[in-house]
Design a protein around this nucleic acid. Structure first.
Lengths: 341, 341
DNA sequence: ATTGGCACTCGGAAGGTGTGAGTGCTACCG
DNA sequence: CGGTAGCACTCACACCTTCCGAGTGCCAAT
């Protein structure tokens, strides 16, 4: 039994690899020829029948070869995929490309394009979450008579802006004083500690400032609460057209929609964050979204110790998982290093 | 001749309208039935032959109906399309939706999604160009020992950030003083006037500040020079899948690429800006980009007096031009109003 | 100028056939 | 009992032929 099981998994691996390479259902004869399994097609057929019973492969129609199911890919990824290292040249390219970036936006932009190119698939990067990020600076700029522009700069270098409408005219001096106090307290502050700050500020400041504290801190809190503020950057959508099967309208339309409905992907990514710190893979229906049933998402966290955000790839079920996983991991590592440096 | 020409154009209009509606080549019989042209199919055939000689229509193959060429759509748009007003409900919806936006990013985002939905096509918005925009505020934030974060806020509320590496350690007081002076001068300043500012600042300030002026102003100038800083926001890519003909890989792949290569579209939009202040239409090969040969771009400027940026739609040749033009114009108008208010 | 008539064209749907890859089963071997 | 060989069976797909009808161009008649 043990020996038989081993060979069966070998057969599964061979099926996945061949199907990924040829995009055609693979039969027993082709298998025994292209791989050194040391057994005859007939034996392979028996193994295939067992694999089919186990729900790992299916035939698209009678008298056709076999194709992996979601579950088949899953066992392949979990048990069979061998980690493949990127070439030295590739790694060097990643490093230099990312180091040339001028600011956070640029880093993120380059990283996502790079990943799209490495995987030949759609790449997505989630911006660092404000929720877990520390403040570096808060700027208050009066705009017109009754509006205040609040600019929040986080430790990761991200800039958030917000316009605020005030109940009374702006007192410029009060704004300046509040700005000073706010920055004295806020630098290094985590947004989740914000509620405490509101009170301490209210005590220390005068009447004019106090009128401002409430709306300003509220805006900070709102920004925090709004998960939708987590932006997503996407690249490589053109590769969808290359990959897509014949019925493109049904297959890639929903994916494009999901990519625009950033909410869906953000939710998915945060779910995947719970899967652990390594590279997480969601295959087909494991993504609980109808637009992604024929899609696999491979992602991992990046950033310091507590991963602050995720980067990943969205591609077809039929893809080179080892390659994608390697690329995602490599880009995430360099990204982490750049952001820390 | 004059009468004949008139009818010929009527025939062209009918062909375009029917083809847009049915997505099938239209023949003489169908035309005479669906439209009140008052002449027999045979006459229409003669007109069609003339239109074909003029290069306005073609038949995909012998014994098929006719289809408009790029040139055909062009004359349709230039001479035949009747401006169609949006319904009151639609206009109200646009207004309220845009007014609910919280900041510039949100306005732009809502506008582009809205336009995508109105036209059932891909919508693009160009962010206001820094080049023509006035400054509102410049913020300097020391980061670590030798880095300075420069945040530029424009009159339109856009925020640009840039990290600067200094030759010597940061003198925080000097930064604070420079910041004050800079904002005293810079508010309302057009970026194109920047060179003059450099000198006046150098004279007014002390030694410590003077070391900072050069790099900071340089960064401002660089940001100005970099046209690539003009961001583009895209929505509605999913509608590409719906529209696309059978050979999706060749037809929508290039379009997706062009949409990601924002440079291409930004260049195209700025070219279109020269066409005048009204809604500009580029049809098929008029877009000098191979990815867009089967695509039409409809765009117009938005913003105050001198249009500071453009908004538009990217769709197939076969589309409802009057409808798209109306939608683009309407959204641009509301956008202008919101930004001014 | 417009029209009715007519012969002609040709893309595409419908239907029929053949082929080969692939399977499952059963009987046989070490 | 796992592996093998042979064999009958099944279909998807590619290929061909046929057929239909929409649509054209041209010409003679009004």
């Amino acid at each position: 039994m043990a020996v038989g099981d081993d060979r069966r998994l070998d057969v599964l691996r061979a099926i996945v690899e061949d199907y990924v390479a040829t995009r055609e259902p693979v039969g027993s004869r082709a298998l025994s020829e292209r791989h050194r399994l040391g057994v005859s097609p007939a034996t392979i057929r028996n193994d295939m029948a067992a694999l089919e019973d186990a729900g790992l492969i299916v035939q698209p129609h009678t008298s056709a070869g076999r194709v992996p199911t979601d579950k088949g890919y899953r066992t392949f990824v979990d048990q069979l995929a061998q980690v493949r290292a990127l070439s030295a040249a590739e790694r060097r390219a990643i490093g230099t490309l990312l180091e040339d970036a001028v600011d956070l936006d640029d880093v993120v932009d380059r990283a996502v394009r790079l990943l799209a190119q490495l995987t030949h698939q759609v790449a997505v990067v989630q911006y660092p979450s404000l929720r877990r990020s520390a403040l570096r600076h808060v700027e208050l700029v009066p705009v017109g008579a009754r509006h205040l522009l609040v600019v929040i700069i986080t430790a990761t270098g991200r800039v958030e802006q917000r316009t605020l409408e005030l109940a009374q005219d702006v007192d410029e001096d009060a704004v300046a004083r509040l700005r000073l106090h706010l920055n004295a307290v806020a630098v290094g502050l985590r947004l989740s500690d914000l509620d405490g700050v509101r009170d301490s500020l209210a005590c220390q400041l005068g009447e004019a400032e106090r009128l401002l504290v409430e709306p300003v801190v509220t805006v900070l809190a709102e920004t925090l609460a709004q998960e939708s503020e987590e932006r997503l950057v996407v690249a490589g959508t053109a590769s969808l057209a290359r990959t897509a099967p014949a019925d493109f309208a049904r297959s890639i339309g929903p994916v494009l929609e999901a990519l625009e409905e950033q909410v869906v992907l953000l939710k998915l990514l945060s779910e995947m964050a719970e899967d652990g710190s390594a590279v997480a893979v969601r295959i087909g229906r494991e993504n609980r979204h109808e637009g992604l049933v024929e899609t696999s998402v491979v992602s991992t966290g990046y950033g310091d110790g507590h991963a602050v955000a995720r980067i990943g790839s969205v591609g077809p079920l039929r893809q080179d998982y080892p390659g994608t996983i390697a690329a995602v991991r490599a880009v995430a590592r360099y990204l982490t290093r750049i952001l820390a440096g």
